[in-house]
Write a protein that binds this DNA or RNA. Structure first.
Length: 491
RNA sequence: GGUCUCUUGGCCGAGUGGCUAGGCAGCGGUCUGCAAAACCGCGUACGGCGGUUCGAAUCCGCCAGAGACCUCCA
């Protein structure tokens, strides 16, 4: 499959044709979660976006090494909290748990949520805590190159010095003069030469439990460092794509560029990709704003803003129905629309298996196939691809209704295409009925009831027929009378 | 305050100089004992005011509103 993929590069603010560094292979790094509380809807977005990218690149014939980290070291809280306390150790004290117990707990939840969303595991999932030595090594090289300084056992990155040789602010589109006049003064910054300098290594306060020995102090690495270190370690000093949420552009990714460049003398990332935010009531959904809904709450419907539960695939569809660089507005109405839309799509996929081939085709799916792939090639435009899939749904339904015909070879081709698109690339999976265990027993029982209902209908005993139907619906089994007989499925 | 982005029909969301996505909801019809589902058909929207152009939702300017980043954040 020869695809020419175009990617919007945040660095150049343009769409660029994607050319991997090494022919046929792609190195992809994505910023993963900080595991100190449950994952919420906002976290689903980058993971689904880059899952799509991972799947699409793989489908397009690339061998992809996908690295997504787990941040389990923690970094400084904001100024409203007692200063200098690590996020994870703070949480640990509240819950009377070991820091690594907190990490493990929320990492498990994250993994379970991702599996539910059918997000493929990355090729490598490195943890910051497992790369302390490598982080110290990078600090050494930055110090050796003269772009960092030590104060009281902490190491800070010298942004001004760096900016004399390189361009600090190139990713986020700001310049140091603006940053100088616009950076707020925060607590605990008196050690730094400039307020915009950032920590590479921080000496731990006595109450700070997460700490590692180093030649400078017992302490912990600065937040930005882990991504620079782990991306380079597993993907090389230069690699293809680095992704993450738009809110990470500044300062996180800006600092990553500075660190890697200060250490290596050259930049390591070739394409920067950033997904936009999910909004709720017109505002970004964020842990810090307290307006988030966790994935578990969405799956169970157990949240005061939710009118019902939404399945993982509904959430996946909801996210893929918008372009990854646009914001999406969360609402019950929008989620319910996604639920119905997805059902329509999945029903059509199932319908494909029921279609009977003719000798000839009166429909032509070629342009739909081409348009779907073209949309994905154009900066991962999943909403357009899905729109074209729905055009195909219309045709599939017309064939089923007997208004159009399809030949055997075209049908096989079409099935393969929908399987590729819906399952392999967009990453949907069949939920409900087919997945549930005990299928055979249930099948038998329902078939029996439907047989009784059929007899009742023949005898025009509408009371019994409707009782069977209505009560089955009541317990979650939907009955559909069609020309070819009765269909049923679990709701 | 600085930097940047957005404003599309009832809702969600694509598009971005002429060919007016898609989903959901709604309406009309077909089918059906009824219902559901399915199918067919229907809606000409792009914040306001100017400008450029043969032609603008799409380019430019101004105004209004919303948001993001500047601090942890996906």
């Amino acid at each position: 499959m020869e695809n020419s993929i175009v990617i919007y590069n945040t660095l150049t603010r343009k769409k660029e044709i994607f050319k991997p560094l090494v022919e046929g292979k792609v190195g992809l790094y994505v910023c993963g979660p900080t595991v100190y509380s449950n994952s919420h809807l906002g976290h689903a977005r980058p993971n689904i976006t880059f899952d799509l990218l991972f799947r699409f690149l793989t489908f397009s014939g690339y061998k992809v090494r996908y690295v997504r980290n787990i941040t389990d070291v923690g970094h400084l809280e904001n100024e409203t909290e007692e200063s200098g306390e690590d996020k994870i150790s703070k949480k640990a004290r509240i819950e009377k748990l070991e820091p690594m117990e907190v990490v493990q707990k929320y990492m498990n939840t994250f993994h379970r949520n991702m599996e539910d969303l059918n997000v493929l595991p990355p090729s490598i999932e490195p943890r910051a805590s497992g790369h302390i030595i490598e982080q110290q090594q990078m600090i050494d090289s930055i110090l050796a190159n003269g772009f960092a300084y030590e104060v009281n056992g902490s190491i800070y990155f010298d942004v001004e010095k760096y900016n004399q040789h390189y361009n600090y602010g190139k990713l986020s589109g700001r310049n140091l003069d603006d940053i100088k006049t616009n950076t707020r003064e925060l607590d605990g910054q008196n050690e730094k030469k400039n307020s915009f300098d950032f920590a590479l290594w921080k000496k731990a306060a006595p109450e700070h439990i997460m700490r590692w020995p180093s030649k400078w102090s017992n302490g912990f690495p600065g937040w930005h460092l882990e991504c620079s270190v782990m991306s380079i370690k597993y993907l090389g000093t230069q690699f293809d794509i680095h992704g993450g949420g738009m809110d990470l552009v500044f300062p996180h990714h800006e600092c990553e560029i500075a660190q890697s460049t200060a250490s290596l003398g050259e930049e390591s990332v070739r394409y920067w990709m950033h997904n936009n935010m999910i909004k709720i009531n017109g505002q970004k959904m964020a842990r810090s704003l307290g307006n988030f809904i966790t994935l578990d709450e969405l799956f169970s419907g157990n949240h005061k803003l939710l009118q019902q539960a939404y399945s993982p695939m509904t959430i996946r569809f909801f996210i893929l129905q918008a372009h990854y660089r646009s914001t999406i507005d969360f609402s019950n109405e929008a989620m319910q629309a996604s639920e119905k839309g997805l059902e329509r799509l999945m029903t059509a996929v199932k319908t494909l298996d029921e279609l009977k081939p003719f000798n000839e085709s009166t429909v032509d799916f070629t342009s739909i196939k081409e348009k779907c792939l073209a949309a994905l090639n154009d900066d991962l435009n999943s909403p357009i691809a899905i729109a074209h899939l729905f055009d195909g749904v219309k045709m599939i339904n017309s064939i089923k209704a007997g208004k159009e015909k399809i030949a055997a070879n075209d049908l096989a081709d079409l099935k393969a295409f929908y399987n590729n698109m819906v399952f392999d690339i967009l990453g949907f999976k069949v939920e409900k009925a087919e997945e549930n265990g005990g299928g055979k027993i249930l099948d038998g029982a329902v078939e029996l009831l439907l047989e009784l209902r059929k007899n009742a209908k023949i005898n025009k005993d509408w009371g019994t027929a409707d009782k069977i139907r209505d009560e089955l619906i009541e317990i979650g089994i939907e009955i559909k009378d069609t020309k070819d007989g009765v269909n049923w499925n679990l709701k």
